[in-house]
Design a protein around this nucleic acid. Sequence first.
RNA 1: GCGGUUGUGGUGAAGCGGUUAACACUCCGGAUUGUGGCUCCGGCACGCAUGGGUUCGAUCCCCAUCAAUCGCCCCA
Length: 418
Amino acid sequence: MLTNAPRGTKDILPDQINAWQWLENKIRELCEIYGYEEIRTPTFEHTELFRRGIGEGTDVVEKEMYTFTDRGDRSITLRPENTASIVRAYLQNKLYANAGLTKLFYIGSMFRYDRPQAGRLREFHQFGVEAIGEKNPAVDAEIILLAWEFLKSLGLNDLKLKINTVGCPKCRPIYRRKLTEYFTEEADELCGDCRRRLEKNPLRILDCKIDGSKDFMEDAPKIETCLCDECREHFNDVKKFLTAAGVEFEVNPRLVRGLDYYTKTAFEIQYAPLGAQSAVAGGGRYDWLIREIGGEDTPAVGFAAGLERILLALELQGLVPASDKKIAAFMVANGAAAEIYAFKILSDLRRKNISAAMDFGKKSMKAQMKAASKSGAKFALIVGEDEVATSTVTVKNLETSAQEKVPVEEVPEKIICP
RNA sequence: GCGGUUGUGGUGAAGCGGUUAACACUCCGGAUUGUGGCUCCGGCACGCAUGGGUUCGAUCCCCAUCAAUCGCCCCA
């Protein structure tokens, strides 16, 4: 147990760190191009923030939060997602003061007590983007575009963009009621899950894998018939903007979001080969959240993307860049006096910003040479009694096997321009 | 949280009631004493996720736990 990380957590090891840094750099580059600034919020918040923000009845709040009481008797929760925190930070720091539209992005770990699977961890990483303060559907399109272009730019194929509208607090309840009425009549035909959904979230029934293909689904009420004018127009405009930008999307009237704060636009980007965890990014508009948390009525849109899932997808397509870290020089010392001499040279090289390594295992020269070779170093710097006595270094080019003995002060230039 | 599958060294794996626990790679050491990558030689599981049980005997059977994985739920 002592040597096992908690279930659902993972070490990111040195041989994987390259992929992570590469991905994070891509995110930062892209967000800069779109004009979004990075923000970092605390890993934990008051539990109440999530209860209110995400919604009491949601699965995330009901059964997936890491909640505990701290020593000051406060109820604290490890963030299961970042949007609520960002809205909190936006209000607390009055970020609305200087900008009509506040554009933020984040990268960080989130926590959800789920049953772990590939692509679904208890501590996982998300990158996300939030645009707060504008109701124009162009912003919805910008956010969707950012998510889409990002995944495309990584080289991923077979991505699918699905969009929908989930209405607003004015029209969604009407639709919800209609659905409940309709499905209550069919209750006998519904699967166990859906019978539960009937109360909790009837919109989800539309999405059910078991009941989805049953006859009565055909005639189930469609959201279009219930949308208020504002929501209908908004959705049409989003589609227009997306089309103008040349993005292919699929309208899926059954697409639903699991967090209560979503209004109007909802979208998801799927990468099917990932199986059950195919949702690689998802988000939408949340015009209701800011007021819910205690701010002025403020419209906002955003999305989050799962970094582990993206990395998984990249791996499947062989798109993860290989690490190519190489050092310039490797010290090889023969004997105790030479070891000290080599150590001095090693330190001098590093002071000159030349990457250098040395095997401290007091091994044979043969073993040290092997280590030098394996390290990928371009040069082996060989020193023994001879070199110590004459203040020289034998510089061996490991690629060409050519070697020459040079005065110690000439070593840096031999390495930089051989 | 529910259902299924799996769990042998650093890695990939064979073995499936009684074997020195195969093989390959990696790793370590060596091939005449100051030199790598190729080749050759040698070494590396006292143990088969963990804990119980069945049996004369268990890596192989049973149970539990833990973990991974697939699907569901949900979500990124």
